[in-house]
Amino acid sequence: MGATTTAPPPPAPPVPAPPRRAGRGRAGRFGRLDARVSPYLYIAPFFLLFLVTGLFPLGYTGWVAMHDWDQIMGKGEFVGMANYVDVLTGRGFWRALANTVSIFLLSSVPQILAALAIAALLDRNLRAKTVWRMGVLLPYVVAPVAVALIFSNLFADRFGLVNALLQTVGLDPVRWHSDRLASHVAIATMVNFRWTGYNALILLAAMQAVPRDLYEQAAIDGANAWRQFWSVTVPMLRPTIIFVIITSTIGGLQIFDEPKMYDQFGRGGADQQWQTLTIYLYELGWTRADFGMASAVAVLLFLLIVVFGIVNFLLTRRIAHDEGRRT
Rank of each mutant, 00 (worst) to 15 (best):
L48G: 08
K75F: 10
Y60V: 00
M66Y: 02
I43R: 02
T100D: 03
R36K: 05
F56K: 13
G62T: 04
F93V: 05
V79S: 01
A44F: 13
L48M: 09
G74S: 03
G62L: 08
I72M: 11
V101P: 01
G92N: 12
A82S: 13
Y60E: 06
F47A: 11
F93C: 08
I72V: 13
P57G: 07
N83P: 07
L49K: 01
Y40S: 11
S102K: 03
F47T: 09
F56L: 12
W69F: 11
G92S: 15
D86Y: 01
R91T: 10
R36M: 14
R91M: 10
P57M: 00
V101H: 02
G90D: 07
P45M: 04
G90W: 08
I103Q: 13
V79T: 14
W63Q: 08
W63T: 09
F56M: 02
F93Y: 15
A44C: 08
I72G: 00
T89C: 02
F46R: 04
Y84P: 11
Y40V: 08
F104H: 07
I103N: 00
I103F: 14
T61R: 01
R36P: 00
G62E: 07
V64S: 03
G74W: 00
G54R: 09
W63L: 12
L88N: 04
R95L: 14
R95M: 14
G74C: 01
D86N: 12
A65Y: 04
F78V: 12
L49A: 15
I43A: 10
G80T: 06
Q71T: 13
W69Y: 14
R36S: 13
V37F: 11
D70H: 12
H67N: 10
G54P: 06
